[in-house]
């Protein structure tokens, strides 16, 4: 957080630099959006084309995972500094989520 304060201490000097940085970041965002649309298209086309179930299912899950990482790190700015605590909360949530799904599935199916 300290580094963020220092850049805003004299905003006039950094104004152009910040504007440029924001614009570049926005370009990254649009790229990751295009990538997300592309991944979604692949997922839908795979299902509509009727490929083998045991091929499609794992690929679908991988595509979803990649999309979520793009959302979290680009759209939700987790790639920025100062998100260490945030990452801890979220990964704890994901870990418990994984255990929850695993538990339900194994108890019901086996």
């Amino acid at each position: 957080m300290a580094t963020q304060q220092s850049t805003s201490a004299n905003p006039k000097v950094n104004y152009k630099y910040r504007r440029n940085k924001a614009r570049q970041e926005m370009r990254t965002q649009v790229t990751s959006f295009a990538l997300m649309i592309f991944l979604t298209l692949i997922a839908f086309i795979m299902v509509m084309a009727g490929f083998d179930k045991y091929f499609v299912l794992p690929v679908l899950l991988v595509l979803a995972a990649v999309q979520v990482v793009l959302q979290l790190y680009n759209f939700m700015h987790m790639s920025h500094k100062g998100h260490e605590g945030v990452a801890l909360f979220l990964y704890t949530g994901v870990f418990i989520a994984f255990i929850t799904i695993l538990t339900f599935l194994t108890i019901v199916w086996w």
């Binding site: 979220l90 949530g93 994901v94 989520a97 538990t103 339900f104 599935l105």
Partner: peptide
Amino acid sequence: FWLFLGGETVLFASLFATYLA
């Protein structure tokens, strides 16, 4: 807010688990 999102993740996980089962 991120703490809340961690909790939401768990909430939706249990709903997904229920749905899958």
